[in-house]
């Protein structure tokens, strides 16, 4: 089994962080993983995406050009990457920020008002982890390792963020 994941959005939405969490989650579940960011001069506001591959075998190319799982956290990303997804792909869409539906009929789209849910929960920056929680629910990826993986990616200097991230994952998971 090889899952090719592409997470896309604006810089500052935690696209890379969500990818890093999923990669660690895969690693701790005994899988082979890779994580590759689009890197560029933009820090906040520009487009950002990252490729994550979780596989039972050694990862070949770390670049995801045809995702099995596509996360879109803004409209330009959905416009750009919808057609790249494989047939049968799962597409996760932040429906607070993206008004349109997926055009493809051969994919399964999940509409999650992640930015609104995150704001309601008092953690407006954690829409990324709400979507991540939904991904874990819909795919069954490494659900035993969530807490362990989160500890790896949340800075030890900010332990209070651990609970907030875990809370956001739970919101998404329980949708």
């Amino acid at each position: 089994m090889t899952e090719q994941i592409l997470i896309t959005g604006f810089g500052g939405q935690g696209v890379l962080f969500a990818g890093k969490f999923l990669a660690y989650n895969g690693l701790l579940s005994g899988k082979q993983v890779s994580w590759l960011p689009s890197y560029g001069p933009e820090m906040r506001g520009g487009t950002a995406n990252c490729s994550v591959i979780i596989s039972d075998e050694a990862v070949g190319s770390p670049i995801v050009s045809a995702p099995d799982i596509l996360v879109c956290m803004n409209l330009p990303s959905l416009d750009k990457f919808e057609n790249a997804a494989v047939k049968g792909a799962k597409i996760f869409i932040d429906s607070t920020l993206i008004e349109r539906k997926a055009k493809r009929e051969d994919v399964t789209a999940f509409y999650i008002p992640a930015t609104r849910l995150a704001t309601d929960a008092g953690t407006p920056a954690l829409a990324n982890m709400i979507i991540t929680g939904k991904i874990l629910k819909e795919t069954g990826f490494g659900t035993d390792c969530i807490e362990q993986a989160l500890k790896k990616v949340v800075s030890a200097k900010h332990p209070e963020l651990y609970e907030k991230n875990l809370g956001a994952i739970k919101i998404g998971y329980n949708l």
Binding site: K20, A23, L27, Q32, V33, S34, W35, L36, P37, Y39, V59, P62, I63
Partner: peptide
């Protein structure tokens, strides 16, 4: 190259 530098793997 840039990919090797920027990517994360175990």
């Amino acid at each position: 190259d840039g990919t090797m530098g920027q990517m994360m793997e175990p």
